[in-house]
């Protein structure tokens, strides 16, 4: 149990850093796919579909096994972070894109009629409304990302699942306890996150009515 909990620290670190990277990339990708320029749209569309289409674990292995052959050596923690960030960032970019598109055309038009620049319209009118729509989906993605961190144990990152697997090799008779506790700790991390997201959602929906 103690060893598991010490493994929880890298799990939480990976989750938070991965989420930060994914959040950033979500907006980059989302805006890219809505760009006026066909080239930007095409390239970001391709990148997003690429990361969405090729399974997180495959990406993780690719970064872990293939990059060194190209002369790029990354610390395994970095590999995990990049894979998580890009994979969930790709999903997040769809959230951003569809949320922006869900703001009615009339809001853009009202912004034009008040002579706002396109940047001002995005910043003050569209994004604040779109953001509300994004929160629940981002919340779900955050949980998915946390669950995804278990996979990085396969590329030798000593997070919680990795610790559990190591412990089992030594104390096979405690298998039930080890994995039982492991699941409980994951739940203990993810459930508060779910709660936090629901609370944020409620908070941001004030003023709608």
């Amino acid at each position: 149990m103690k060893n598991l909990l010490s493994g929880a620290v890298p799990t939480i670190q990976l989750t938070l850093l991965g989420a930060a990277l994914a959040f950033l990339l979500s907006f980059l990708g989302g805006f890219g796919r809505l760009s006026r320029f066909t080239a930007v749209r095409g390239v970001s569309g391709f990148i997003v579909e690429f990361f969405r289409g090729t399974s997180l674990l495959v990406q993780l292995f690719w970064l872990f096994y293939v990059l060194p052959f190209m002369g790029i050596r990354l610390e395994s923690g970095m590999v995990g972070l990049l894979a998580l960030g890009f994979n969930y960032g790709a999903y997040g970019s769809e959230v951003v894109r569809s949320a922006i598109l869900s703001v009615p055309q009339g809001q853009h038009e009202a912004g034009i009629s008040l002579n706002m620049t396109s940047l001002q319209r995005m910043r003050y009118i569209i994004l604040p409304q779109a953001f509300r729509t994004m929160i629940p989906s981002f919340g779900n993605l955050l949980i998915e990302l946390l669950k995804g961190t278990a996979l990085v144990s396969l590329v030798t990152i000593p997070e919680m699942t990795f610790e559990a697997l190591a412990m089992r090799t030594n104390d096979a008779q405690y298998t039930l306890e080890i994995f039982g506790w492991l699941l409980v700790i994951y739940f203990a991390i993810s459930y508060p996150l779910t709660m936090l997201m629901r609370w944020t959602e409620r908070r941001f929906s004030l003023g709608r009515l």
């Binding site: 809001q107 038009e109 009202a110 008040l114 706002m116 001002q120 604040p128 509300r132 003023g207």
Partner: peptide
């Protein structure tokens, strides 16, 4: 030019007062 729309298009995430202050301040 200014315009009043058939469906108002007020900004739902701002109070009435903020709706009126946003453009004069920002624009």
């Amino acid at each position: 030019i200014g315009m009043v729309f058939q469906h108002f298009h007020l900004f739902p995430h701002m109070t009435v007062l903020k709706n009126l202050m946003e453009a004069p301040i920002k624009v």
